[in-house]
Design a protein around this nucleic acid. Structure first.
Lengths: 204, 204
DNA sequence: TAGATTGTTAATCGATTAACAATC
DNA sequence: TAGATTGTTAATCGATTAACAATC
């Protein structure tokens, strides 16, 4: 299979979310034209993106919404349960644990870690905060595949190293710092300080 | 001046953060080669990016760190005080209010809004949560220029509309939904659900 | 001066969009 | 059938990288 560019992969979750909205509103079929219109995207791009993975549409008709949802979920591997661990039980960590996303997909934060003594043992939702010394054991016993980092920048690399050693396959880093990992580990950054700073450029 | 692409603007805060690290470590000069090495980027790209805005380097020497910091801050308008408002005093809103970014730049969250009766009047740091009915008045009296949305997806468009009406120039949307605004308003999305979902694609 | 490194053009690479034959 | 819309190629557009003259 030809290599799919990251730009394409990043659009799939946006497509999926939109399709779920359509589904809730009982819309059965969508054309790439309407699809693009609603998302502010070029319809050819949407057709091309989807076509990397298969022929999901019907000529003259469009795309069947429930079918396309199913297909994109498969592509993104969201049809299987994916366990996620989070390190850093601060405000941001709490916010993420409480978020409802995980209900829609089968992604779920199943373990939380922090090394501050006053945090260890405390409860977030139904999860008990564990010390970092438990990380490897828990990642392995719970088959955790994705790690989220919500610690200060100065600690991010240490946490990343611990995640990699424990065997996670991907990391979402919220700390405002670049982390180095082996190339087979996928890292995304979700750093709102850089978002805010780049927004400032566009002020008059 | 030629139009600067968004890709370039998004890299500037990353450069700035790295330069600040160098500055803290008392490093006075950096070449684009070392710069690129440390950030995993092509040195020509860094030179080209910076050169859109001026000739900040010295041939044969490299870039003066404090000078380049100053210049990038000017480009990003981070040399002036920028007031930010946040709507949605939930967990995520709390996390952002507590974040320390704002100390490094002159960006500061100076007002928080929420329409839940039990939230209104409560205190976050030294800010009192105001009802949405106060938004326009406060945005104008405090000269707020950027709005942050941390409400559920179903409310995001309403909040965006209120921000636009009140006169903000840019919006950072954390809700997992696309918001429509007039084209002169700049919007960035900081949606970690799509980040997590696209990460899943790369799992084995 | 010689070595290093920028600024910048030209070449390459990749992503987006237009166009249209195929076909429902 | 006629109209609509996909799948997909070709054209365009834009971003990244290589290369090198200028110069500190």
């Amino acid at each position: 299979m030809k290599k799919i560019s990251e730009a394409v992969v990043r659009r799939l979750p946006i497509y999926l979310r939109f399709l779920n909205e359509l589904h809730v509103r009982n819309i059965q079929t969508i054309s790439s034209r309407d699809f693009g219109e609603r998302l502010g995207m070029n319809p050819a791009q949407i057709r091309k993106d989807l076509n990397y993975f298969g022929e999901f549409g019907k000529k003259g008709i469009g795309y069947d919404v429930p079918y396309l949802i199913e297909k994109i979920q498969q592509i993104l591997k969201l049809d299987q349960t994916i366990h996620v661990a989070l390190v850093g039980a601060g405000n941001l960590g709490h916010a993420l644990c409480n978020y409802n996303i995980y209900l829609k997909s089968n992604m779920k934060i199943t373990a939380v870690f922090d090394d501050f003594p006053e945090k260890v043992g405390s409860q977030i939702n139904n999860l008990i905060v564990q010390p970092m010394s438990e990380l490897t054991k828990t990642v392995q016993s719970q088959a955790i595949r994705i790690g989220i980092i919500t610690v200060p920048a100065s600690e991010a690399q240490n946490v990343a190293d611990a995640f990699v050693k424990a065997g996670v396959e991907a990391i979402l880093n919220f700390a405002p710092s670049i982390i180095k990992v082996p190339q087979e580990i996928k890292v995304h950054h979700a750093d709102f300080t850089t978002e805010l700073h780049s927004l400032a450029y566009y002020l008059d």
